[in-house]
Design a protein around this nucleic acid. Structure first.
Lengths: 146, 146
DNA sequence: CAAAGTAGTTATATAGTATAACTGTGGGGG
DNA sequence: CCCCCACAGTTATACTATATAACTACTTTG
């Protein structure tokens, strides 16, 4: 049988990094469950979102905006292109560049994606105690991320 | 040349998961730089800390307390034992069990570790705007992590 | 025009995490 | 008392995320 143990967490109880990490894992857990059917990971979500609102950006611009290295970004775009959500279009003016656009299917997908995401986000906001608490949290974590 | 681009981040600007993730990466970045010399990862830190304050716990108890799977915990303890910071002691009453203790070197290491950690934590608290902001952040993220 | 720089890609390495299966041990019910 | 099940730790394995170097193709600059 599992002994009933009381553990002294010492400074972990109030360590910013540790508590932040645990919270982030819980949020991503909920995100993952929300998008299990679509097989959409957080990175995919953010990429689709950025392309939807900034069509025609270069691959490297989207990657940099999201803090993803361009080398690792290739496979992400490959995946989204294979699902016919995103299209690479070679620039006429600079043939090195791949400009990114949502396909018509991608636009439609993005709508549903945002609906699913909003439900996820609403759950998080409720856990936090409402929109004011959410705003306060965002304000605080933004200070950590500069 | 890099075009001067203004990117529309849409809901990412205020998405709990995304902002939390970016903040956590920044905090872990600082943590990593703080402990680069010691080659101590966040998981190692938390394990040493828990053993220091709860000597004699079973491996599986420490692992579970930290949300680490027991299979993955083996390598972590192996590493700490190889550095002579942690000791596995077979329980007399249950020969399946490995009870964990800090070695004398481990106790000493833990002291220095906590000093280094406090400097890191102080930087995070300063970024946040002081201890009250830190307390508020902890309160909020704890709601997300249940 | 040559040299340097840029965009995307490929290959590769490492860390973190998840699962299954195994060994050795302990405990409870027939 | 033995048999079966549960548990602790371990090993092997796989998958994801991330980081770096080097390559190709192309553009810009001196």
């Amino acid at each position: 049988m599992g002994r009933r143990i009381i553990i002294n967490y010492s400074v972990l109880s109030e360590a910013v990094g540790y508590r932040l990490r645990r919270a982030q894992l819980a949020v991503f857990q909920d995100f993952g469950e929300s998008f299990a059917a679509e097989g959409l990971r957080p990175a995919d979500f953010s990429v689709v979102l950025i392309i939807k609102h900034n069509p025609g950006l270069k691959q490297s611009e989207v990657a940099e905006a999201l803090g993803i290295q361009r080398a690792n970004f290739v496979a992400i775009v490959d995946g989204l292109e294979a699902r016919d959500l995103v299209e690479r279009r070679k620039s006429e003016t600079d043939r090195r560049v791949q400009a990114l656009y949502l396909t018509p299917l991608g636009e439609q997908f993005a709508e549903n994606m945002l609906t699913t995401w909003q439900a996820h986000e609403d759950r998080m906001v409720e856990k936090l105690g409402g929109p004011d608490a959410r705003d306060e949290l965002i304000r605080l974590v933004n200070r950590l991320a500069e």
